[in-house]
Nucleic acid binder design. Structure first.
Length: 195
DNA sequence: TACCGT
DNA sequence: AACGGT
């Protein structure tokens, strides 16, 4: 699963054959098919594990007493950028078209984990006085999720025309400025300085 | 590893 | 022709 996940993310699911995975992981195809009924089941297991790890990372440190929304948000955009360096956006389209059960898993993850997480951070940011009190967390959480997904779409932001790191930073910066209070803006700008 | 069906 | 599956 480790080999398969790395290869799928990097080169796309259809580009990597079961023979590739067998060769690179040093096991026979027979052994793979004893664990996974078919390629679809292997892909599903890989994604399930990846998403589970991401969910853990998101929830990490949320209950700590020194928890700070701005630090958390900035840290997570860094995580997204790291992910980008090894994640081929082509995979999202492959899931949608050829691996519908995995796509469903991912859609569910967006709704039940990411959306709820963003909403939680927005509400916390309000409590801590970083974000303006009048923002609608439900609407803005949706917007943030969708705009983030858009940056992963090569048709909307062709990687040949847009540097993916710059794109992530710019869109995050625009989003956060739209919701910061005066106090929040001050804290955010000084945080950017130190980073 | 050779092989078959898609 | 290439690849999933036997």
């Amino acid at each position: 699963m480790k080999v398969a996940t790395e290869q799928f993310m990097h080169f796309g699911i259809r580009a990597i054959t079961m023979d590739d995975i067998a060769r690179l992981s040093g096991v026979s195809k027979k052994t793979i098919y004893q664990e996974f009924g078919d390629k679809n089941q292997l892909v599903y297991a890989c994604f399930e594990q990846e998403l589970q790890e991401d969910a853990c990372l998101m929830e990490e440190g949320l209950e700590k007493p020194d928890f700070d929304v701005l630090h958390t948000l900035v840290g997570q955009t860094q995580h997204i950028r790291k992910r980008f360096s090894t994640f081929n956006p082509l995979v999202l389209h492959e899931l949608q078209r050829y691996f519908p059960s995995c796509w469903e898993l991912f859609e569910n993850f967006k709704r039940e984990v990411i959306l709820k997480h963003i909403k939680f951070l927005l509400e916390k940011g309000k409590e801590q006085g970083y974000f303006r009190a009048e923002i609608d967390t439900r609407i803005l959480a949706h917007m943030r999720l969708e705009q983030t997904m858009d940056t992963f779409d090569p048709l909307k932001f062709p990687p040949t025309q847009f540097d993916q790191v710059t794109l992530q930073l710019e869109i995050f910066d625009h989003f956060i400025h739209g919701i910061l209070s005066d106090k929040g803006r001050e804290a955010y700008l000084s945080l950017k300085q130190t980073n």
